[in-house]
């Protein structure tokens, strides 16, 4: 009865095989890199310069079991959550203003043009002057690193909404807040999520860097401070373990958290392939 149904996305054994192969390739690449690391480490045979993979993993395991690494990671993530949250709240406010009025739109464009190219870490000296040594300074620079990327992307997303979709919303009697929330936000979601991902990457980098540069910003200290500390103690295997933790957290947030959000929303809706 229906006309020319488009072929459904391939399913079954073929798709399973296609999804399985890249994973195998990725594992192969990791194996080669790991072997190279281990080999090089053994060859120079100097734990103070370049510990082997096995020594790094051992340190990572030891620090995880002792609870030190998870505690440091948690400290970093707490600060990050504060800054990320504040950045999101401000970005939401700016974008809503931009959607609502010409002035808001111009304001957002000007602010992002000014502050987006400014590395967040460059504001740290100023932040320390204003907020002192401690979490508020870190939160300030993280907020700065998140805000502009998210606002810029979300606004671009709203502007790229097909006019037909907006008219459909108006046709259904939606206006103002209801139109924004029910039509514009979901329609702009691909760009919003892209902004959130970029914001996350900026924030994570900025935080670790800030902790490294001005390490003693909080009592317990996060992963960046941990890395700095261990380097001073010449416990290089633990420095490597700390770096591994930074990478691992980055991968988990990118590959699990954001991927899940994407799969449940924009990929399910066909807004992203």
């Amino acid at each position: 009865m229906f006309d020319g149904a488009r072929p459904q996305p391939p399913a079954g054994p073929l798709a399973a095989e296609a999804a399985w192969k890249p994973t195998l390739r990725r594992a192969g690449v990791l194996l080669v890199l790991g072997l190279a690391w281990e080999g090089y480490g053994r060859w120079i045979d100097n734990d103070l310069v370049f510990p082997t993979l096995s020594a790094t993993l051992a340190a990572f395991w030891r620090l995880t079991i002792s609870g030190e690494l998870p505690a440091r990671a948690l400290a970093s993530l707490e600060v990050l959550a504060l800054g990320y949250g504040a950045g999101l709240a401000l970005a939401t406010l700016l974008v809503l203003l931009a959607v609502a009025s010409r002035f808001g739109s111009e304001l957002l464009a000007t602010l992002t043009a000014m502050f987006n190219p400014l590395p967040a870490i460059a504001l740290l000296p100023l932040a320390l002057l204003w907020f002192g040594l401690g979490t508020p300074s870190l939160v300030f620079v993280i907020t700065h690193s998140v805000l502009w990327a998210v606002a810029l992307n979300a606004h671009a997303g709203v502007q790229a909404i097909p006019p037909t979709l907006r008219r459909v919303g108006e046709n259904l009697g939606l206006r103002g807040w209801r139109l924004t929330l029910r039509i514009l936000l979901p329609a702009a979601l691909p760009a919003v999520i892209a902004g959130l991902k970029i914001g996350w990457a900026f924030a994570w980098r900025t935080l670790i860097a800030a902790e490294l540069v001005f390490g003693t910003t909080s009592r317990s200290g996060g992963l960046g401070w941990f890395i700095f500390e261990r380097r001073n103690n010449l416990q290089i295997d633990e420095v490597f373990a700390g770096l591994l933790a930074v990478i691992a957290i980055g991968l988990v947030v990118e590959g699990v958290v954001f991927r899940t959000i994407e799969a449940r929303t924009i990929r399910r809706w066909g807004l992203q392939r």
């Binding site: 229906f2 006309d3 020319g4 149904a5 459904q8 399910r268 809706w269 066909g270 807004l271």
Partner: peptide, 9 residues
């Protein structure tokens, strides 16, 4: 979901 449908559908 709409993206699975043909134009006529």
């Amino acid at each position: 979901f709409p993206h699975m449908l043909s134009g006529g559908m």
